[in-house]
């Protein structure tokens, strides 16, 4: 298990390095002269020269990349060009919104999706299964931001149970801050839960046909004992893979849903940076997002190895 984790950590490090290099290449080298790009066509030569010095553009691209990378390890991502604030500080503020949003949605969708999937599989072909799967079909098709708009209409405008948008920092009023995240989390979680329920059901229905379930029945277990003791754990394996991938979609979802609720998350930071052509913020924010996705996939791999002894021994999940 430890050897497996070490190998994976090495893989994660390489992937992160390559990701950083690509992001750096796209947003620092590809625009030609980043200073000219950020200031626009009308900027004076003096202003461009000043920004060039500030950005350290007189150094080679190779050096700049490593300066950025070392800064990253020290938590220093430079100063935002448009907001004149350290990028690290800007991002730390925004992550206080985005991170609870993404993790909350992941937790809620798992808590709703998996049990529904298991119960549906156990009652395959019966009314409850059919209803659950019709509901899941609808859930998968609903754009989360549109669902968010409907939630605002119902729970914030019509019934006024939750705030329609905006965010109070955690330090000011933690309860209110949490309340402002309830609707966004639900909007993100329910469509995800629909996907998880379907995957869980399909996987469990498949596993229920497996020979070892028949062995368990022949041993004397009832069908539902066999499902709970032998089926669910095996059926979870493909679900874990999907959950890792879903996290990438959840990150995308938080960026979009922030717009519905006017939440000051990472997404809105990125959009204001894009319109201000603030490459310094954009590249670091994107790297943080990508790093989050890579990290979650790593956790999924570890969880996989934890559940499945064949992977612990073999040293890798066979792809496909």
């Amino acid at each position: 298990m430890i050897g497996f984790a070490a190998k994976r950590i090495f893989g994660v490090a390489v992937t992160l390095l390559v990701a950083a290099a690509i992001i750096f290449f796209l947003l620092d080298i590809l625009p030609g002269d980043p200073a000219r790009f950020m200031l626009g066509i009308n900027a004076t030569d003096d202003a461009v020269a000043a920004l060039r010095t500030e950005l350290g553009l007189d150094q080679s691209a190779f050096n700049r990349f490593f300066i950025w990378l070392f800064g990253l390890f020290q938590g220093d991502l430079g100063i935002s060009f448009s907001q004149r604030m350290p990028v690290t500080q800007l991002m730390a503020e925004r992550l206080q919104v985005s991170l609870p949003l993404a993790l909350g949605a992941l937790t809620l969708s798992t808590l709703i999706g998996l049990p529904i999937g298991i119960i549906a599989a156990q009652n395959r072909g019966k009314l409850g299964d059919t209803l659950a799967m019709i509901l899941a079909q609808v859930g998968i098709a609903i754009p989360n931001f549109w669902f968010a708009m409907l939630l605002v209409l119902a729970f914030a405008v019509t019934w006024r149970i939750f705030p329609p948008g905006g965010f109070v920092p955690w330090s000011d009023d933690p309860l209110l801050a949490a309340r402002s995240l309830v609707l966004p989390i639900i909007a993100l979680a329910l469509p995800q839960a629909a996907i998880l329920a379907r995957v869980m059901r399909t996987s469990l229905v498949d596993v229920m046909q497996a020979d070892f379930i028949r062995t368990a029945r022949a041993k004397g277990l009832t069908q539902s004992q066999a499902i709970w003791r032998h089926g669910v754990r095996n059926a979870l394996l493909p679900v874990l893979t999907i959950m890792g991938l879903q996290f990438a979609f959840l990150i995308a979802g938080t960026i979009i849903v922030e717009n519905v609720f006017y939440l000051p998350g990472l997404g809105r930071l990125i959009f204001s940076a894009i319109s201000a052509r603030d490459l310094i913020v954009v590249r670091s924010a994107i790297l943080v997002l990508v790093a989050m996705v890579i990290l979650v996939m790593f956790i999924v791999d570890l969880a996989y190895a934890f559940v499945d002894p064949r992977i612990r021994a073999g040293g890798g999940r066979s792809d496909g």
Binding site: A210, D211, F212, T215, H230, R233, N234, D308, P309, R310
Partner: peptide
């Protein structure tokens, strides 16, 4: 090959 639970 398949008659035993692979995770137990």
């Amino acid at each position: 090959m398949t008659a035993l639970n692979p995770l137990m």
